[in-house]
Write a protein that binds this DNA or RNA. Structure first.
Lengths: 204, 204
DNA sequence: TGATTAAAAGCGACCGGTCGTGCTATTAAT
DNA sequence: ATTAATAGCACGACCGGTCGCTTTTAATCA
């Protein structure tokens, strides 16, 4: 029984890596089976359909995100350090590529832009929850006086994710090495704009 | 002959729309053929392979981008209006979805993150050229004193594309209606930071 | 301890379907 | 009659998924 659970986890791990390369939909069960060291029919003993496997992979991604990004960030002091740790963990996840990272929600979405279904719903839910977590961090930093009170946390999240997306796209697809520096600089600018202003009176 | 050229353009138009929905790789020649009103084998009279068709579609996207985004932007006065027109046209392209827009490079890239080939190369080239055009606009605005001299044009382009990506992702996939406003606000912030400072001495 | 047995897991073969891609016959215009 | 273009069709490869059989595993009982 324990052995079986181990196999199931192995399959999800391999599927996680493959999905990072070719997406959740393009993932071939035959390729996954041979990668995980069993036959295609053996897969169906663990997952009753491709969709069930995809949903399991999305669950797994959520757990990885919690473990690798969210939990370590929450271990940091409240306010800017916590938001910054969130950024650092996130950028590191993207930069690592694989193993252990490399596939995050965003790369998997475009396949489902116009394709409704349980997989799409779960992807959307996962990302909304992720955004909400970051938004909560920012809101807490505002409440405790680390960020300016007139900041819009959702706008912050919007810009944050834009930076991460541009970083992922320009480093992984366009292979521009300077993307890393620009991402960090853009994030620093975002933080600077979000901090309470040091000079007391600056009216535009 | 003229008739043939017309048919070829029709096929590319349909392929452009289909690729916007399901990507360049997921595009099915059978679906495309029936959509364009000919048989699957009829396609091969116009394009000798799927790859040739994909390359033609990418060329077509480049022409559309020139026509719909770049050319109108260049008609605006130099400096901020030109950069702003670039942004407005781009955001409009994304918002339109279809017909006539909706498919832009970014949504097509993830399929080729780890798949080398002529299609990937052409996609990369198209995007680098697109980025270079925007970078040239920003650089000109700097040279003519509209933007601050210590601005990094590539960093500007990085943030610009990040905003557009976040907008596309959050409006088309997550269906968040506020994405439009946040994109515009983020762009205004980017412009404000890029302008020459009105208050003469601000060291920080 | 060693034999029995039932269940769990894995395997190869195979199904219907779709894919990209060539070949061939038919059509239609010159 | 010639020729260019098209439709129909067959092909091999691959897809997600099913089925029946064999092997391994682990608990049971003598």
């Amino acid at each position: 029984m324990g052995k079986g659970e181990r196999t199931r986890k192995d399959i999800i791990d391999k599927a996680f890596l493959l999905a990072g390369d070719i997406g959740l939909e393009g993932l071939s069960l035959g390729a996954l089976a041979s990668e995980a060291g069993l036959s295609k029919s053996g897969l169906f003993a663990h997952f009753k359909s491709k969709e069930a496997l995809q949903l399991a992979v999305i669950d797994d991604i959520g757990e990885r995100v919690s473990e690798i990004i969210i939990r370590p960030a929450l271990a940091e002091p409240r306010g800017e350090p916590r938001v910054r740790a969130f950024f650092e963990r996130y950028i590191e996840w993207i930069a690592n590529g694989r193993p252990g990272g490399g596939c995050i929600y965003m790369a998997l979405c475009h396949e489902y832009d116009d394709r409704p279904g349980a997989v799409r719903d779960k992807l959307v839910a996962g990302q909304l929850e992720f955004s909400a977590t970051l938004e909560r961090l920012v809101r807490a930093a505002m409440d405790e006086g680390h960020f300016r009170a007139d900041l819009d946390p959702r706008a912050f999240v919007f810009e944050f994710l834009g930076i991460e997306m541009a970083y992922q796209h320009r480093s992984k697809f366009l292979r521009l090495p300077e993307a890393h520096d620009y991402a960090r600089a853009a994030f620093n600018g975002l933080i600077a704009r979000s901090r309470v202003p040091t000079s007391p009176s600056s009216t535009e």
